[in-house]
Simulated scan of single mutants.
Amino acid sequence: MKASVILKNSREKSLLRRHPWIFSGAVTKIIGSIQPGETVDILSSKGKWLASGAYSPFSQITVRVWTFNPDEDISQEFFHTRLKQAFNSRSLLMKNNNLTACRMVNAESDGLPGLIVDRYTDFLVCQFLSAGTEHWKQEIVASLKSLMPHAEIYERSDADVREKEGLKPCAGVLSGQEPPEFVEIQENDLFFLADIRRGHKTGFYLDQRDNRAALAAYAENAEVLNCFAYTGGFGIYALKYGAAKVTNIDSSADALALCERNIALNDMDIAAVENVESDVFQILRKYR
């Protein structure tokens, strides 16, 4: 029999609005034996079934909801269906925007709390950031292999947030081969080298694609200061849209070196770019 999490009186309001988190302060008691990541039923103070989700005893978010449908079983089939829906929703996006890299699964937005899956050409890079996704990791990887059989699958669950879930950092090959030092990706008509083994997040800030494109309205003939530049994504977009000069600031010499390579990869004028290795907060005081 599945364990149950009982909410305090009137604490189900956010669930009724389909918010997928149950905070520890909303829980009055737990019925049954349950291990981290296992599935629990969420009941109101009057015993009404509200949802089912993944239990996390170490986090302030005690339960992350998998489903609000009482007829939906949390199983291999559940994860395969959610992952397939997410992948299908990105296929047209990638085709229409000339993308070889894209966030394929965006956690709660795709009904899979704590799971990130980013695609870099033929590599899928995963982050399992919650007790629930860690518990179902084997099933999730099996579904990813089924949905994209030719893909190499790599884990980058080395984010600090895992500690709040009682999980240790984890990174390495989940299926296939070790990624190369850099993977070349295309975003619109620009190209970038991404370090998916050691770079920030999963290697590139794929979730900032629309914000980079938004520079088209502002960059022409402008002098652009790109703080926390990382590998130059925003700066390169600014150059594409006609910026007169771009100054990239980052504390990482390695990131700025890759930024230079990305500028060259797109045949842009390096003379219009100044890369500054510095702490942003300190150097901004000098720029005033």
Score class of each variant (00 low, 15 high):
M1T: 00
K2E: 14
S4F: 00
S4E: 04
L7V: 10
K8S: 05
N9W: 00
E12N: 04
K13G: 09
L15K: 04
L15T: 03
R17S: 10
H19D: 00
I22S: 00
S24W: 12
G25M: 08
V27M: 08
I30R: 09
I31L: 13
G32E: 05
G37I: 02
V40P: 07
S44T: 09
K48Y: 08
W49N: 03
A51E: 05
G53D: 11
S56W: 04
S56M: 03
S59V: 13
S59G: 12
I61R: 14
V63W: 04
V63M: 12
V63H: 06
V63Q: 07
V65P: 05
D73I: 13
I74Q: 02
S75E: 09
S75I: 09
F79D: 02
F79E: 01
H80T: 15
H80F: 15
T81R: 13
T81A: 14
R82P: 07
R82D: 04
L83M: 07
L83H: 02
L83T: 08
K84F: 07
K84L: 10
K84I: 08
F87Y: 07
F87K: 05
S89Y: 11
R90P: 01
L92R: 10
L92G: 01
M94V: 12
K95V: 01
K95Y: 01
N96G: 01
N97L: 13
A101H: 13
C102S: 05
N106T: 06
A107G: 15
P113V: 11
G114Y: 05
G114W: 04
D122S: 08
L124G: 06
G132P: 00
G132E: 00
T133A: 14
E134H: 11
H135K: 15
W136I: 07
Q138H: 06
I140F: 03
I140R: 02
V141W: 09
A142Q: 10
S143A: 15
K145V: 15
K145G: 08
S146P: 02
M148F: 09
H150S: 08
E152A: 15
R156A: 05
R156Q: 03
E163F: 12
E165K: 10
L167R: 06
C170P: 00
V173A: 08
V173P: 01
L174F: 02
S175Y: 07
G176T: 08
P180N: 06
F182W: 12
Q186S: 06
D189H: 13
L193W: 01
R197G: 02
R197I: 01
R198Q: 11
K201I: 14
F204E: 09
Y205V: 12
D207C: 09
N211E: 04
N211K: 11
A214E: 05
A216E: 15
Y218R: 02
A219Q: 04
E220S: 13
N221T: 13
N221D: 15
E223H: 00
E223A: 01
C227F: 04
F228G: 14
F228R: 11
G233R: 14
F234Q: 03
Y237N: 00
A238W: 01
K240W: 15
K240F: 11
V246D: 05
N248E: 14
I249Y: 05
S252K: 13
A255H: 12
A257P: 00
C259L: 14
R261M: 06
N262C: 02
I263C: 01
A264T: 04
L265Q: 03
D269E: 13
A271S: 10
V273R: 06
N275I: 01
V276M: 10
V276A: 10
I283S: 11
L284N: 02
